[in-house]
Design a protein around this nucleic acid. Structure first.
Length: 279
DNA sequence: ATGACTAAGCCACTTAGA
């Protein structure tokens, strides 16, 4: 199975480009973030013509997540337990939920397409919302992997955190003055790893950014950030056979500011033929 | 000068992204 995640920054503005990529790269499951439309506005037909089922979740022009898959998606959820909402600068369990999470099962893998809140600025209500949101996500991962430790679980998407200084090449994003690189955000990311997940791309693709700001020639100067990740439980990580960051998707006509991140999985499990026969 | 991209909607300005 080939699984990809991509913050597409409006699915309607570049649907042809997205579907062409999925077909060209033989992507089986494509998790998307920032679809920037309602479910009613989603261009399902273009995906269906290319052989993809789609589950989409979006309320408005803001946020929105989706998963396209060649095989049908089951057990679809539009939030994880405890996920806080946000409206009118108030976050918490009583605020309306935003369209930032979509969970579905395919090929035995539980996939979450996630668009972690941006945070806007250090100290902004949205920043505390981001930290609360990540804390609830960690709790969900912890609970899932306590109940079913061998579940192939993947959290994929735009985490809006550069976990190390090497993941930030944008000179405007300065530690101590900007979101994405603050200690609490990095601690929230580390807590996901402590809960039993690992970045399955980094061992195979140690360097490279996944996002470049549209402004100030960030892409030609390669002043980007690595903020889009595929985090997997041990069963998922053990099945990974390859990974890629498709930097070329930042080029050309009307690109997203993010590029796709892809992993290949061998989910057939241990080969019985390799084991000694015991009578 | 801290600005100068992009997308969507109450569409010619505002909000949001990061």
């Amino acid at each position: 199975m080939r699984l990809a995640t991509w913050n597409v920054n409006s699915v309607r503005a570049r649907v042809d480009r997205i579907v062409e990529f999925a077909v060209r790269e033989s992507v089986d499951v494509l998790a998307m973030q920032e679809i920037k439309c309602t479910v009613a506005q989603f261009p399902f037909d273009a995906f269906a013509e290319a052989g993809y089922h789609v589950e989409a979740h979006g309320f408005s022009q803001w946020n929105g997540v989706a998963i396209a898959s060649r095989e049908p998606l089951t057990e679809v959820e539009t939030s994880f337990p405890g996920m806080p909402g946000f409206a009118n600068n108030v976050s918490g369990p009583d605020s309306p939920l935003e369209a930032r999470a979509l969970g579905a099962t395919v090929g035995g893998v539980r996939v979450w397409s996630l668009y972690v809140p941006n945070g806007r600025a250090l100290g902004d209500p949205h920043y505390f919302y981001k930290l609360d949101w990540l804390g609830a996500l960690e709790q969900h991962v912890r609970q899932t992997l306590t109940e079913t430790p061998d579940q192939a679980l993947a959290l994929v998407g735009d985490f809006n955190i550069a976990p190390t200084n090497a993941d930030n090449g944008d000179p405007a994003v300065v530690e101590g003055f900007a979101t994405h690189v603050s200690a609490p955000e990095r601690e929230a990311y580390a807590a996901l790893e402590a809960a039993g997940l690992s970045d399955v791309v980094r061992p195979l693709v140690p360097t490279g950014y996944t996002y470049w700001d549209y402004k100030r020639l960030r892409f030609p100067k390669n002043e980007g950030m690595r903020i889009d990740f595929i985090l997997g439980s041990h069963s998922f990580a053990d099945a990974v056979t390859g990974a890629a960051i498709h930097r070329n998707e930042r080029k050309g006509e009307a690109p997203s500011d993010h590029v796709p991140v892809v992993v290949d999985l061998d989910l057939t499990g241990p080969d019985d033929d390799d084991r000694p026969m015991i009578f």
